[in-house]
């Protein structure tokens, strides 16, 4: 195996390598941040969908067990504000 020190790199190759590394690092950082944010959103979306289903099911149940709106609108004699 050839030792790295004996390999001849052209002049300015360090700058070229650094420029391409900067590009890939920038891309990687951006993609990492976006992936993190999207994963968080996906989790939140799942939670919200579940909560919403539960809330809708609960409100449907409440609506079924509640008295008819016309009857509920008429206050009982002892509830009339004086």
């Amino acid at each position: 195996m050839t030792p790295l020190a004996s390999v001849h790199f052209p002049d300015g190759s360090g700058y070229v390598l650094a420029a391409y590394l900067v590009f890939f690092l920038l891309l990687l950082i951006y993609l990492g941040i976006t992936a993190y944010r999207l994963l968080g959103l996906e989790r939140r979306l799942g939670d919200l969908t579940r909560q919403l289903d539960e809330a809708e099911a609960k409100s449907a149940l409440d609506g079924a067990s509640a008295p008819a709106p016309a009857a509920a609108a008429v206050p009982a004699p002892d509830e009339v504000p004086r």
């Binding site: 976006t34 944010r37 999207l38 996906e42 979306l45 919200l48 919403l52 809330a55 409100s59």
Partner: peptide, 22 residues
Amino acid sequence: LEMTHKLTRGRVKGLERRLERL
């Protein structure tokens, strides 16, 4: 990708509002 992120966030906010209303 960024548009997907923003639209998903909009969807999440819409669902949050709906849940709060409920």
